[in-house]
Simulated scan of single mutants.
Amino acid sequence: MKLNVDLSALHRAVAPLGNVVTDFSIKSLSEEWIDIGDHLKSGMILGKDIQLDDIDGSQGILNYNGHQIMLYIPDQGSFINQVIADGKQKSAKRVHVAECKKIIEMRERGRFNDRYDVISRMDGFFPVFGFEYHSQQNIKGEAELAVCRYCLALLNYKNYPKLSGENKEKLVNNFSYAAFFESYSSYFKSLPKSTVVLQSGSYTSDWPAISSKLRNELNYTCEQCGVNLTKHKKLLHTHHINGNKADNSRRNLRALCADCHKKQPHHGHLHVSNEDTLKINECRREQHKFDVFNYDNIVKYTDSALEGLVLKCQTSALPGPELGIVISDGGEFISMDLCWPRRKVAVLVNMATSHVLRKHGWNVFSAFDALSNFPEFQAKIR
């Protein structure tokens, strides 16, 4: 069957990325991937659709078949009515976003399968059920469930363990699952569909020319961090400040590198790969945008997936890591997300090149390993 698809809106949407190949054909390589993504929105039951061994928590955050996921228990028992009315009360079961000690305990006790559902729904509501004692009825519904506090502590999310009791409550009550997934998106090839805000048809027909003209006039320089991307033009975007894609007045336009663009308000859905973040930081370093490696700059410019570790280092008064450092190995260039060069300690989001760094005498950690074994990690740096 031949499909005729109008991709004009897509062409306009990708125009901020610079020179993009638009002469291509679309071929489905995996119907299973599409089906899995759709099922994950509504929930899949461990022990039926998914086996326990399929869930990977080695990076802290939970991963199934390349999808970032959450685990929760839909059976809320006799508290079902109260949970549907207010899923954040203490009697409600929590949602797990990481391989926390509760998940590990449930694995070890053999109480994992047939209790948990796997889901990637982003709006904070979860399908639940239970048995109401007084009416003797089985009840189903949706509840706005709270995130597990052990998970937040494990990942040091927003410096959770160091917050006051009041601020911990505020973080849990205001927790956004979409924002959480966006923070850790560099571990994955894409964000879940439900977090992506499509702007199809909202750009004006002359948008590609307007965007190209502005970026060219600014010599492909980010107006926020000052990095020049002449050699990597696709990494410089054009941002609409007020969010109105039809307002192309100069006062509403700003040329931003992909990293700065993603970190604008309401732009977390803009997926920027770890590879692109590393490339931008390499350029920033070469151009002396990191003259001072204080923690404000590090938090501002590092990959958001590493924020928990950076904040932990800061509160532990460790020397600040450096960004954008590259080493050469036989003509291959290896980038590090965070590193302490004098101590030869590196932290990577993508551990595929860790063996190369270790060959050169580096101690290499993933962010999760560094957080989980922080005393050991800290000793390597001090």
Rank of each mutant, 00 (worst) to 15 (best):
M1G: 15
L3M: 11
L10N: 13
V14G: 05
P16M: 04
K27W: 10
W33Y: 15
D35Q: 15
I36D: 15
H39I: 04
K41Q: 10
G43V: 03
M44A: 11
K48Y: 11
Q59M: 13
I61E: 06
L62N: 01
N65C: 11
I69M: 05
I73W: 02
P74K: 00
F79W: 10
Q82E: 15
Q82M: 12
K93V: 01
V95Q: 00
A98Y: 06
E105M: 10
R107Q: 11
G110R: 03
V118G: 05
G124A: 12
F125R: 11
F125D: 05
F129V: 01
F129H: 05
Q136V: 09
I139R: 00
I139P: 00
K140Y: 14
G141C: 02
Y150R: 08
L152Y: 01
N159A: 15
K162F: 12
L163N: 07
V172K: 04
A178P: 06
A178K: 15
S190C: 13
T195R: 04
T204K: 09
I210K: 12
R215W: 03
R215G: 11
N216R: 10
E217M: 07
E217F: 05
L218W: 01
E223W: 06
I241T: 11
N248P: 12
R250V: 15
H261G: 00
Q264W: 00
H267G: 07
E275S: 07
T277A: 05
L278Q: 01
I280N: 00
R285G: 02
D291E: 14
V292N: 11
T302V: 09
V310S: 07
V310Q: 01
T315L: 08
P319K: 10
G320K: 14
E322R: 14
L323D: 10
G324R: 02
I327D: 13
G330L: 07
C339F: 13
L348V: 09
M351I: 05
A352S: 14
R358G: 12
K359G: 13
W362L: 07
S366T: 13
A367I: 10
D369P: 00
A370H: 08
P375F: 06
E376W: 08
F377D: 11
K380L: 15
I381W: 06
